[in-house]
Amino acid sequence: MGVIGWLDANLVSIVDGVAYGLLLFTLAAGLSLVFGMMDVLNLAHGTLYLAGAYLTFLLSGGGWLGFFAAIAAGIAIGAAGGVLLTAMTQPLAGRGHLDQALLTIGVALIGAEVFLALSGGDPLPASEPAALDGSISLLGHVYPTYRLVFIGVAALLALLVYLVFERSTLGALVRAAVADREMVQALGVDTRKVLLAVFAFGAALAAVGGVLGAPIIGPAPGVDESVLVLSLVVVVVGGLGSIRGALLGALYIGQVQSLGVALIPEYAPFLLFGSMFLVLALRPRGLAPVARPA
């Protein structure tokens, strides 16, 4: 079997790995920035995804209007959640990471219980717009239409986030605040506003990830926790505080979980953490760490 034959046999896994990776990026980007900038480990990040996925169930009945309403509501609720989390975690800023982690775990547990009360414990149907609810032929392979569209949309979103954070003046300010907060403060910038904006943005991105991702990873009890663990792995692999790292890490984990499992299914249980270990052994600071003063 030549290269072409191999690509043909595994095409669906590779494409699905990209979809999966981009979905993880929407979560990991916010998680990474918030920790990198604010030293806040937000363990309620998965709850934001779940909230977004729940919105899709609630608002999207198969029409475009409902789906866009879910996206708008996702942005609003995600951003509000980010502001709320900032307000909750800031008073603990001086008390170390563990207190923040306990607080956000508490928020996550409450979120999970609220979801359980709303859903009655059953996984909920969250549908894509009916126009995308089919499958199409991808070089002779059947592939879900929605996932292909999702790849396009999420790639645009990733590009946008990348350009804003890595190529704009605003992004330079944010990156400077990640690298050396005191110095930026000394330049007369109110870093608290920058931090609040970044938290709100990261949270909104996770919630929108939930809205868009619901037809792929739907709202069900426990989903908040599993996406949180995956995005933590992505952040560790990619390097803290860096959008480029989050993107590289997400695409890498996406392929590991898709192509990797398809090629060596017997090692599937070890692949996720095995591949994380591999990255940590070779690049201890992640694939694309932020440059910081020593």
Partner: peptide, 29 residues
Amino acid sequence: PIGGRSFQPYLQQIEKQKPKAVYCFFAGA
């Protein structure tokens, strides 16, 4: 549980086996 993962790589194993039909056991989410 499958959690946040996808069944796609496992569906590909089925395709490789070229069966006539499929028998599965799953419950809940």
